[in-house]
């Protein structure tokens, strides 16, 4: 007999957090950056969060596509779960970024292409959740359209540092990391991505349970009616 779902999820969550803890140790052991010093360490959590924000938006758009054009209920659930994770990791990007910027640029926020486009992508994910919740009868299709429009913003976030004159570090910075930093960075990225997948599957299980509950409630009502 397989272990109950909640136990398996607990184990998966614990594994992901252990990996994250390991990444933290590696980050602590990594040498400080020459010009910025300790503040540069924010980078190890900031970049994976940003990557997950983009991944969430992309997966949400993919799920929405499957829902809109194929009527896939699973696609709809994936889109919702991914959008929620997008809001979570977007928040992490938007908090860790300014904390780094305060030390590096002297100001928490600059109106600059990458910051603006990331903020917008996050706002669209929030809008997705709002639409899901309060959008009325067409809420799910409306939200799906929103996710697809939001997908347009993903390349804008990624390429913004190249298209516009920008003070945000370039994407190529990753390949110029020192040997001690590279390992910590990739480990952190792997831990974050693993955590993302675990969270997505937990969130999907919750959504599925919700759908099943609705089904069973109808069934129960029918059974009670038949009896009486």
């Amino acid at each position: 007999m397989p272990a109950p779902k909640s136990t398996r999820f607990l184990a998966a969550c614990a594994a992901a957090f252990a990996l994250l803890l390991l990444a933290c140790l590696a980050i602590g052991a990594a040498p400080p950056e020459a010009t910025m010093g300790v503040v540069q360490k924010i980078f190890y959590f900031h970049v994976p969060s940003a990557w997950l924000l983009m991944l969430s938006a992309l997966v949400s758009a993919g799920g929405s596509l499957a829902y809109l054009f194929r009527g896939s209920e699973r696609g709809d659930r994936v889109a919702l779960a991914a959008a929620e994770l997008g809001v979570l990791f977007g928040l992490c990007v938007l908090v860790s970024g300014p904390l780094w910027a305060k030390a590096a640029w002297g100001a928490y926020w600059q109106w600059e292409a990458r910051l603006t486009s990331s903020l917008l992508l996050w706002l669209m994910m929030v809008a997705y959740l709002l639409a899901r919740r309060y959008g009325g009868p067409a809420a799910r299709r409306l939200a799906a359209a929103l996710a697809l429009f939001a997908a347009v913003d993903i390349p804008l976030v990624y390429f913004s540092v190249r298209f516009f004159r920008s003070i945000h570090p370039q994407t190529t910075v990753v390949s110029t990391l020192g040997p001690g930093m590279r390992g910590a960075f990739w480990l952190s990225l792997a831990a974050f991505t693993g955590l993302w997948f675990v969270l997505l599957s937990v969130r999907l299980a919750a959504e599925k349970a919700q759908a099943e509950i609705v089904e069973l409630e109808i069934l129960l009502e029918q059974a009670e009616e038949e009896k009486s």
Partner: peptide, 25 residues
Amino acid sequence: FSAALLRSRSRDALLGALLFPIVIP
């Protein structure tokens, strides 16, 4: 978005909230 919100009760409040993040670029 306006057409999708046609039957929604909270349409006036939602339209701006959904539309503005997308059109800000």
